[in-house]
């Protein structure tokens, strides 16, 4: 059981994460995708919004996404607390500062705006989309990496 407490190898992680797509379809009839949860939270916070994107969003049909992301947080708590011998921090120590908070806030803004404009994130586009042979999802994934590489290599000296 020693291995269980260590980080899992890429092949085991990859296989189990990939199985999320069929399992979520088979067990719950849902398409795997996480970034729509942001829209659902927004719609729940402003049910009478004049913006169609929130006001006309089907809050009932998408409520499962909130349950799903709460599950992700619980699973992470379990794994960090009980399944890790020596849990490493998710973020570097340098992020625990005012500057770090601003970076996370701005980066988060890009995540929220970008995923909603693109209509999906790594789960909905890269994993679910590509595995269902949806070509715009492949293009989206190429753009995810283009944006990430541009920031890391272009602004790396300033940001990190």
């Amino acid at each position: 059981m020693q291995w269980l407490m260590q980080p899992w190898p890429w092949w085991l992680s990859g296989i189990l994460i990939g199985l999320t797509v069929p399992l979520l379809y088979l067990l719950a009839g849902k398409a795997f995708g996480i970034s729509t949860s942001l829209q659902e939270i927004g719609a729940l916070c402003s049910p009478n919004s004049k913006l169609d994107y929130l006001g006309k969003f089907d809050r009932k049909a998408n409520l499962w996404l909130v349950v799903f992301v709460v599950g992700i947080a619980i699973g992470s708590f379990i794994a960090t607390r009980f399944l890790s011998r020596d849990p490493k921090p998710f973020l570097p120590a340098s992020m625990e500062s005012v500057g770090g908070a601003i970076k996370l806030l701005c980066g988060g803004f890009l995540i929220g705006f970008g995923t909603r404009y693109a209509g999906g994130c790594t789960s909905g586009h890269s994993i679910t989309g590509i595995s269902n042979l949806n070509w715009p999802s492949l293009l989206a994934t190429v753009c995810f990496f283009a944006g990430g590489l541009a920031v890391t290599w272009g602004l790396g000296g300033l940001l990190f």
């Binding site: 980066g107 995540i111 789960s123 590489l149 541009a150």
Partner: peptide, 28 residues
């Protein structure tokens, strides 16, 4: 898909999280 995708990629690189891991980081 192109503009939003690129912006999201930038945010992913800055924060080290895509939407799912955001919730995982908080839960952890």
């Amino acid at each position: 898909v192109v503009i939003g995708g690129t912006l999201f990629g930038a945010g992913w690189a800055i924060t080290g999280a895509c939407p799912g891991p955001i919730y995982a980081q908080i839960g952890g």
